[in-house]
Simulated scan of single mutants.
Amino acid sequence: MSYDFHGTWDPQTNHHSALFDSPSDPSTGDQKFYNSNDAIEAFLTRGVPAAKLNIGIGFYGRGWTNLPNVNNGLYQSGSAAPGTYEAGNEDYKVLKDRPGTIYTDANARATWKYDGNTFWSYDTPAMVTEKMGYVKAQNLGGAFFWEFSGDDAQGTLVNTISNGLK
């Protein structure tokens, strides 16, 4: 699984599903390795064939609120943002239309939306496309996702996965 690396169980905002690590990430210990590339590399170095590994895409995001307007909300302390099903969790189909600015971490290759108070870390279609490029470059088996109901009515994310793996 290559999502749910960080969520509101952490006291600070962070990337839900970063592709790579970031030197700016304040995480310590094993959490420094909570990203897709490090997870894939851990399997590859232990002899798992690349063709048997898949990248996961969460069709939802992890969110915090009551944040200071610092660093566009990244690595800031807050509380779980309200969500449809549970606090700190919201579907892509809802997040894509929420107000805020989308940012991309140039090192971690992760996206988030921040409105000055609330931070949501989730995969945008552009980031899903980038992750499918990673799948192909690493000769991985493919991709999977959780789950259909989080996508929008047009199937934006599932179509992005499909197109990216062609």
Rank of each mutant, 00 (worst) to 15 (best):
A153T: 14
T111P: 07
V135C: 09
F144M: 12
I40Y: 03
Y122C: 08
Y85I: 09
I57S: 08
N66M: 10
E147P: 04
Q76E: 12
D105T: 01
G133V: 06
W120A: 04
W120L: 07
E41P: 00
T104L: 03
A51F: 00
N89T: 14
A106P: 01
Q154K: 11
I55D: 00
T124G: 06
D91Y: 15
P49H: 00
K93P: 06
D91P: 07
P68S: 04
N159Y: 09
S162A: 14
G100P: 07
G142E: 06
A80D: 12
A108S: 07
N69Q: 09
P125W: 09
Q154M: 06
D115Q: 04
G61P: 10
Y85A: 03
G150Y: 09
L140C: 03
P49Q: 01
F145C: 13
I161A: 10
N66I: 07
W64S: 05
A143V: 14
A81I: 11
A80P: 10
D91F: 15
W146N: 05
T65G: 14
T124N: 06
S79T: 15
R98Y: 15
A143H: 13
G58D: 12
T84G: 12
N89D: 11
S149P: 10
D151E: 06
F148W: 15
F145Y: 15
S79F: 05
Y75D: 00
R109T: 05
A87P: 00
K96L: 03
T84I: 12
T65M: 10
I102Y: 05
M127P: 01
V135L: 08
R98H: 14
Y103F: 15
I55N: 01
Y60M: 02
V158I: 15
G83I: 13
V70A: 00
S162F: 14
K52S: 05
F59A: 09
A110W: 07
R109L: 11
L44W: 02
A81L: 10
L44P: 00
T84W: 12
G56D: 06
N89R: 08
Q138E: 01
T84Q: 13
A137M: 04
W112T: 05
V70L: 01
G73K: 05
L67A: 10
Q76C: 10
Y122H: 10
L74N: 01
W146E: 04
E86R: 11
P125N: 11
N89H: 14
M132I: 13
L44C: 01
G63C: 08
A81R: 05
W112G: 02
M127S: 12
N117D: 15
S121H: 02
G78P: 03
G73S: 11
N69R: 10
I161G: 11
V135E: 03
L67Q: 07
A51E: 07
G150R: 04
E147W: 08
W146H: 06
N71M: 01
